[in-house]
Design a protein around this nucleic acid. Sequence first.
DNA 1: CGTCCACAGGAATGACGGGCGG
DNA 2: CCGCCCGTCATTCCTGTGGACG
Length: 412
Amino acid sequence: MGNPNILDDVFEKFINEAKLFKDREVLRHDYLPEKLPHREEQIRLLGQVVAPVLKDSRCSNIFIYGKTGTGKTAVTKFVVSHLESKAKEYGAPVKFCYINCRMTGSEYRVFASLSQSLGLSIPFTGLSVGEVFDRFQAGLDSTRTLFIIILDEIDALIKDRGDGILYELTRINESLHKSKVALIGISNDLRLKEFLDPRVFSSLSEEEMVFRPYDAGELRNILQERSRLGFFEGVLSEAALSICSALAAAEHGDARRALDLLRVAGEVAERQGSATITEEHVREAEKHIEHNKVVEALKNSTLHSKLVLLSVYHLGKACSGSATTGEIYDVYNELCGELGVSMLTQRRLGTLINELDAMGLLNSKVVSMGRYGRTKKIRLEIARSLIQDVFATDGRLGHLMEYTPKLVSKKQ
DNA sequence: CGTCCACAGGAATGACGGGCGG
DNA sequence: CCGCCCGTCATTCCTGTGGACG
């Protein structure tokens, strides 16, 4: 019966004490601000490259590299949205389509999104890829359009599907009569060209841009700028600002991380009813984000992935950090036996390990031990306590935390 | 200086659930 | 309802390989 009152309390408290955030949205990393500090040069360059579409000619394909949180996406969206309004002003037939390849996931869905942005309706599934491509091409050519395709996080697509789509897209202009297509490829991975067919690569990177990471000072400016819009005056302490930029700078100058840190720190402070954001809140936010990362990652991974992670955790006790694939496979087999689950092959395990590596939960490195073979050294990338926290609440796997695999006790 | 370990990781293939168009 | 195609997970078979050992 008291429940509504509890909530009432919570809400009232929130309304009365929420004196920190002026505009929460501004502090999200996907918010597109009116100013992008320290990226003026890139904005100008990209602007020059795409400008020809205003005069009815196709612009060069362009390839943009840079690590996460260096402003690639923000700059591109910024430039393109300005281009769009200019194009309207001059009546140039410019359209664009932004696709995040990691979200979109497959060749089929990329073409489906492209078609949808032209106003074609494409079923989720059921058609062959070729059919969707044909429809897209026909749809595009039915009116005269300069179509700019932005493929963000393109490395995700290429690494597990190959460069077939890019091949199609780079050649599409040859079969278009009225319309023209230009590509903007954005990659987090600087070594992407190694995965590409050289023909595709050279056509895709008629122009190239590299985004350098921000340094601590630049991050600080960015955060300052955003916090002016996002927080009320005097909320953010100097110390908190410094620590945010320092932490993010240590992590390859990732502005996305810096902004997340700042926003979550604000939320932590708010929940504690504090009037200012302190260094302590930022530290708290760091833990919070890390914890969420793990929970999120595990929420959509399979039982077997979790078992792999647990195996590494257990092995960590015995061999001070790094374990080999073979050891993990043994422990994993034992855990499967404990649960009465059938186990996967070692080949499969290898790719699961790679996936966990990509998610940042594990760290794996191929090493050669000479006469004693060639394997991967794998260690946990996250705090052991975090694993304990997360698995303790897992009904099915909780008890495996206490269990000590034979291999581990033998090693001890 | 060749051997050979203990895997890495690519390719081909299959099983399965889901959705479409007819 | 069927036949077709999709994406995902998993297996099988395979070739490749860095470097300590002998």
